[in-house]
Amino acid sequence: MEAESPDREWKKGSAELLILSLLEQQPRHGYDICKLITARSGGALTFHVTTLYPLLSRLEARGLVQGRWVEKADQRRRRYYSLTPSGRKVLASQRKSWQDFVLAIGRVMGTENA
């Protein structure tokens, strides 16, 4: 994963969480995931081929997502990734700890600023 802005380390830690959350509602292919991250972050976060697919492979190897070639009418066949049950659990726990973390940071920073 590359970091342009904001901080590289933050992005690194959060990349898995971003992907897992995007797959929570529906299976998506790699390009779709990339586009959504860029769009939803307002261009602040971008993923390239060289970072996204190794990450997807790693998630797949850990059994958190499952890739599957799917062919739809009038479309080229694509590899769609979906969350596995254990992926859902990991997402839930990561989301919880992220929210806790953000809350904690917010509190600290809020206190400082106050």
Binding site: E2, T50, P54, R58
Partner: peptide, 13 residues
């Protein structure tokens, strides 16, 4: 440009 950093791909895989 997406492939510029192909080392990352190699090391990632």
């Amino acid at each position: 440009g997406e492939l510029a950093n192909s080392d990352l791909l190699a090391s990632g895989l």
